[in-house]
Simulated scan of single mutants.
Amino acid sequence: MLNWRWLGARALGALITLLGVTVVVFVVLRTIPGDAITASLGIESGTLTPAQRASLEHFYGIDRPWFAQLWAWISGVAHGDLGLSLTNGKSVTSLVASSLPVTVELAVLSALIGTAFGVVLGVLAGSRPGRASDSLTQGASLVGLAIPEFVLGTAVVTILAEAFHYFPDTGTFVPLTRSVSGNMSQILYPSLVLAVAFAANVMRTTRSEYVEMADADYVRTARGKGLSPGRVRRSHILRNATIPIVTLTGIQFGYLLGGTVIIEQIFALPGMGRLLFTAISNRDYPVVQGTVLVIAVLFVLVNLLVDLLYRMIDPRTRAS
């Protein structure tokens, strides 16, 4: 049964978090040298007369105090308006809407691959602690965590280009609904790169929990009753090790939604990370603010979903 009081408290906490993120991003952007006029006109902004600059400051709303600008931004967000891009004049909402599905698909596929391999390898290592398979699996996980994503991504692109004449597609992104093969040719390789560290973290957590649960009293009791090893593994060990795995998976998935900047650049994917990188480079403040806010919303929603999964998996969390 869903506790509405608990859900309301979590929703209020999420709103406070998002408000804090909005204020911090807004203030940080305003401390960077330059302004909206410089971002939109470049070096031509130096040729403006005082009257022209004053007119543009009024047009962009930067002639008002910061608090008034922040309130105008929050009011616009409340009405679904994230503003207009300073570099191309397009709606920030439309830019985010076109890039968000790319990042979400990349994150989801990476999480699925990483979780699947991580759990399987973690169980393999945890069921044979101290043996060769355990040492080999743990060594592979350390390598996966140690290699930076940009190094691995660059190496993958180089190998694919030399061996298979594959180059990242810099053209239009192919949605999954239009062509499965075309979409996978663009999204599979970067997903595999992101899944390496994801799988390594999941594997280490799964192994640790498996080894700990395997020595629990209720597991020895289940074995003493004559239950098959497979049933003991599924119903008693893995089921009780699920919560730490869900926690780690949810946190990593949240970071994936906002941490794909480098991989999207390397593989030329028009996702949220690439949009944010371009906006920062161009000092396109409305795009930066809108993109960061959307990423923060997704991160908060993922954390809320993880909490809901807790309550479904473990009744003790509902009681508390």
Rank of each mutant, 00 (worst) to 15 (best):
W4L: 14
R5F: 11
W6T: 06
L12P: 06
T31L: 14
T31F: 14
P33S: 08
G34A: 12
G34P: 03
A36P: 07
A39L: 13
L48R: 11
Q52C: 15
R53G: 12
A54N: 06
G61R: 12
R64S: 12
A68T: 14
W71M: 09
A78W: 01
G80C: 07
D81V: 05
G83E: 09
T87E: 07
N88E: 03
G89L: 13
V92S: 02
T93I: 11
V96F: 01
E105L: 13
L106H: 12
T115G: 07
V120T: 03
L124R: 05
G126T: 00
S127K: 03
T137M: 05
Q138I: 15
L142T: 08
G144A: 05
L145P: 06
I147L: 13
I147V: 14
V157H: 07
T158N: 04
L160D: 09
A161T: 09
F164I: 11
G171D: 06
V174C: 13
M184T: 07
S185W: 02
S185M: 13
S191Q: 11
L192Q: 03
A197D: 02
S208P: 06
Y210I: 00
V219I: 05
G224I: 04
S228P: 13
R231A: 06
R234T: 07
H236D: 03
I237E: 02
R239C: 04
A241F: 00
P244Q: 14
T249E: 02
I263E: 02
A268E: 11
F277Y: 15
F277M: 10
S281Q: 14
R283M: 08
R283T: 00
V288F: 00
Q289F: 09
G290W: 06
L293I: 08
V294W: 00
L298R: 02
L305E: 03
V306Q: 13
P315M: 10
R318E: 09
A319T: 11
